[in-house]
Design a protein around this nucleic acid. Structure first.
Lengths: 284, 284
DNA sequence: GAATGAATGGAATGAAAATTCCATATTGAC
DNA sequence: GTCAATATGGAATTTTCATTCCATTCATTC
């Protein structure tokens, strides 16, 4: 039995695999070269197809695919396929590359540095994500609702609290009347009792959801106070109480999520509201 | 044998499926709703995983996945999976393509949209900026100081407050002892009086500087409590009281600055500290 | 509180897919 | 042209996986 090559290591990502294929393309026998060409021309097919379907499409035998994979050091076709799948999973190949370039001369040498890089990359990804997932018309409607409100009630607990506290700071500077709900226990209900349908609320809650936030939003919705919300899942209990809601999933690094994208969103919303208020005031 | 629903047709693409799931989520039984939530939150997993692996990850039985698929009119899990795979096929993965997709979803058509785009772009710039301006060795030293501290005092006011409040939340989850300074007036001094040289402080202050924050940092420094700080200028009054300090300038949009990069930095620092603490504890 | 129907967990089943193996073909060296 | 080594096709085998089935639990109604 022939041992697999130990001199050249097995490619771990698509780029490495591509490089290996291109490098050894010339020395490959006919059918394997055929597979090589096919795999680079139709990477999606390799990712999604079965050995049989790909074999048919590439006009080779299934066994040839296995041999091809083994030729490049993989155990079998399946493990090679993982590389092609991982390629599609990566949402942002751009930033990963950028990070690799970064780590060449700095951070990753030190242990904590990789954590730092990881969060920066995650933040970039989050931003890309909101840029494409936030519907501009919904944003416009949200701004409209909140700009017309007399007082804006900001509802947030725990992980979401920094967002609303930042908005509170900005509203203060921008002379927008607001009430920050969720600080001291007990007085929240009194505050919310004062809200009328001429006001509006902005609620933020991420999984695991704070039940009080959802309850407070529901309370306001029942009293015809329009609610706009920011959450990380369409299943958030906030969604059903809201006139407009945004789904914003922060990318994570090692399971921890920062609030970078949420902060950008919050600031955009805040400034857009203030700007619209000013226009509304001038029109009168 | 029950016939499949003929009244509602089977969703043919991801958007239709998503809509169908959202519409019927309320009436779904527990486990199926669990699958519904999982499938929308982790579409990539559904696309590539096997029924068994997805089931484990979503904490249900494989048979539940089949039932879920059948519930929405599919023949079995496999045909539902095709929808999730098609979604990935259509998606353009490259970075250049993503930018194109962004302008197709054009926010700038609507007035508020340009504000939104502006803040997202500013956040990207801020992140690029910290990636290059934060010195990894300084970061490592800061982590070291704060990880060795008994209690971490978090000092921030006004615009910086959301950062420290988020760190407080994360420290709580990560079981790191902390004190959040800067909430209620008056008790701050009492809190800080308890700090010893075995503790450490992390102070955040951006221009215009809150004078109390600087004063508090100075007070601690005089009493040999090591201080790490985050600020936006080398001329910040915080710098002189600090053992390590970071200069982090958030990019602005129309004069307004968000906290996106600061949040990424804060989260990285927090997690790095917690991670180092764990290592220190194990070594003992 | 019992009875009924739906929902769920988990093992059994059967289908489909990857891999292996062997016979045959092709290539290259002498 | 023959031999040896390598490559290939295709069937056989083994593994993996989706699906089905049944016993049990859970919720609902009377």
């Amino acid at each position: 039995m022939a041992m697999p090559e130990t001199t050249t290591e097995v490619p771990q990502d698509f780029e490495a695999l591509k490089a290996a294929i291109l490098e050894r393309k010339a020395e490959l026998p006919k059918r394997l070269r055929q597979v090589a060409a096919y795999s680079l021309d139709n990477p999606d097919e390799i990712a999604f197809g079965t050995a049989a379907s790909i074999a048919t499409s590439a006009e080779v035998q299934p066994s040839t695919l296995v041999r091809f994979a083994q030729h490049f050091g993989f155990e079998g076709f399946s493990s090679l396929q993982q590389i092609f799948r991982a390629r599609l999973r990566e949402r942002t190949p751009g930033y990963e590359d950028r990070l690799k370039a970064l780590s060449a001369n700095d951070h990753s040498k030190l242990e904590s540095g990789s954590i730092f890089n990881g969060f920066v990359a995650a933040a970039h990804r989050s931003l890309d994500n909101i840029a494409s997932s936030v519907d501009p018309e919904a944003f416009e409607r949200a701004v409209d609702i909140l700009a017309k409100a007399d007082t804006v009630y900001l509802i947030a607990k725990r992980r979401s609290y920094p967002i609303s506290s930042y908005m509170a700071y900005a509203f203060g500077k921008l002379k927008v009347k607001y009430q920050l709900v969720g600080t001291a226990a007990g007085i929240d209900e009194d505050m919310l009792a004062m809200a009328t349908k001429n006001d509006a609320a902005f609620a933020v809650s991420f999984s695991p959801y704070a039940s009080e936030s959802a309850a407070q939003a529901r309370l306001l919705a029942e009293r015809k106070v329009p609610v706009v919300s920011l959450t990380d899942s369409a299943f958030s209990p906030l969604a059903e109480s809201s006139k407009v809601w945004f789904e914003l999933v922060e990318a994570d690094h090692a399971g921890f999520r920062s609030l970078s994208a949420s902060m950008a969103f919050a600031m955009a919303l805040t400034v857009a509201i203030a700007e619209k208020r000013q226009r509304l005031a001038e029109e009168k």
